[in-house]
Amino acid sequence: MSGIVFANTLRTSWKQVLYWGLGLGVLGFYIGFIASSSDIIQGYADLLASMPPALLQAFGASSVEVLRSSEGWIVSVFVSEAAIFLSVFAVMAGMNITANDEQSGVMDVVMSLPISRSSYLLERWIGYAAIGLGILLVCAAITLFSLVLFGVDAQMDLVFISILNLYPGTLLVMTVTGLLALIARRRALAIGLSAVFVVVSYVFNLIGGAASGAMADLMQGLSFFSYTKGEQIVLGNYDPANALLLLLVVLAGFALSVRMFVSRDIGV
């Protein structure tokens, strides 16, 4: 592994860090601005308090009390929205690992160079993983800056960790998309399947959170969104095993991708 493909990936795609990071950062900035008004936070919490607990769960919070704190409100509202936007980035990044170059024919040139398929895949994957991390850091920096700017009384470290906690889920969607693209061979089909994966995960998390019982638990268990809930970080009952589990699935998905990419025909 020479790192040249990794460096080239960063060189050609670094602007995504800027665009996505700024895009999500603006959302964080806006949330920070709203969080500066305790009236709005309390009003929002009161509104949700009047709703059935199941609906509250569906909004990503297990108790109204979480929403009454600034960091709880920011994490419940902003981080859950950011997770959806990041899924879109992750699908695009997953397609960029190999599928787009394969579809355009560029892969024929690349794979005629002295680089093994597994090294190429690894460097591309690390490149886009680094871009994903860059986006989260830019987003976190802007969000925290807005909290300081608007004088929001919030525990910054919890907000920061909650935003970073989106990383395993982002990697998962990226890896699953990359794998689906290798299996499906058709770009449109791979994007469609990845979108289904994200939407079904989201719906499972929503319904699983709102309902109770074994089926609801199973649905939540199958949704990657349920493993990245920032609310648990704010409440202090976050289980790092959740992130670890997602990362293990990412690792397994990546290993499968390497196996697929090494053994299959390119551009057919």
Partner: peptide
């Protein structure tokens, strides 16, 4: 190798591509 249907990175200049391919070649 020159493929029959050559596709290259559309947004990059010839020099950039030459430099990239040369660096992969070491």
């Amino acid at each position: 190798f020159l493929p029959g249907e050559l596709s290259l990175w559309e947004g990059r200049t010839g020099q950039q591509i030459i430099h990239y391919v040369a660096s992969v070649r070491g």
